[in-house]
């Protein structure tokens, strides 16, 4: 009982934008550095160490950006829906702001997944695009992000925008397992998963390492950008509160 009280105290403490704003500011450089380190290591392994593929030659190297962006597009959607859901049920302002901050990054990842997928499909499959279940459901994911952003932008009252967005985000979660399992549920041109929790990876070691490091790079990048954006959103939404005014006064002093 007391531990749950303590936990919820901690939760509400950090869920307060006034506490989170400076904390996020301190976290951003950490994630930028991590993203750069993982990116350098991943690119090095992916472009210089990983061997040629037996059937796709050097063309397979698109995997080092295609898989990380695809994974992140799905993962960010789940996290975004989770924050939106928490905001809807617990009425915490910061959770909804987090969801709002994640949406553009998720949309970017979905777009990159589609662009790099098209650039991979053309030489290997012989087409930029097919209405295959995997490709179509990923395109729907992109439109869900765009729909979420557009819906929130169309409502002036932030609290109502949060609620409407949360409902859309939560309904759209249904699409995530459809994307993931599309290649096993239906006949698709897209191949099955090379890496999954249920079987050994179907990739050479160094290829796998390159891909995982790039995935970590994309993950750290997403956190860093979402934190930058959430700080902007906090300022936009909380501008009439006392703590923002104090913060601004403090920055002026520091600058002078």
């Amino acid at each position: 009982m007391t531990t749950t009280n303590r936990l919820s105290q901690i939760f509400y403490h950090y869920a307060s934008p006034a506490t989170f704003y400076p904390l996020a500011g301190k976290m951003i450089p950490v994630f930028v550095v991590l993203a750069a380190l993982f990116g350098i290591a991943g690119l090095w392994i992916g472009l210089f160490v990983a061997p040629t593929d037996f059937q796709q030659g050097e063309g397979y190297r698109i995997i080092f950006v295609h898989v990380p962006s695809s994974w992140m597009s799905m993962f960010i959607y789940c996290v975004m829906a989770l924050w939106a859901g928490i905001g809807l049920t617990m009425n915490t302002r910061l959770s909804s702001m987090m969801a709002q901050a994640l949406a553009p990054t998720g949309a970017l990842m979905a777009a990159l997944s589609l662009i790099t997928g098209a650039l991979w499909g053309k030489p290997m499959w012989g087409t930029w695009w097919v209405w295959d279940a995997r490709l179509t459901s990923e395109l729907i994911l992109f439109f869900l992000y765009i729909g979420f952003i557009a819906l929130q932008a169309s409502i002036d009252d932030p609290r109502r925008a949060d609620k409407a967005g949360a409902i859309l985000a939560l309904v759209g979660v249904v699409n995530i397992p459809i994307i993931y399992f599309s290649v096993t549920w239906w006949n698709t041109l897209h191949q099955g998963a090379s890496v999954s929790l249920t079987k050994a990876p179907a990739m050479a070691q160094t290829m796998l390492w390159g891909m995982l490091l790039m995935a970590l790079c994309f993950w750290m990048y997403s956190i860093a950008v979402a934190l930058i954006r959430v700080r902007a959103i906090i300022l936009e939404r909380e501008r009439h509160t006392e703590w923002v005014k104090q913060l601004l006064a403090g920055e002026k002093h520091a600058g002078a």
Binding site: E58, V65, T116, W120
Partner: peptide, 9 residues
């Protein structure tokens, strides 16, 4: 195709 996708990212 390879550099195109890396460049897009």
């Amino acid at each position: 195709y390879v550099w195109g996708s890396f460049l897009a990212c």
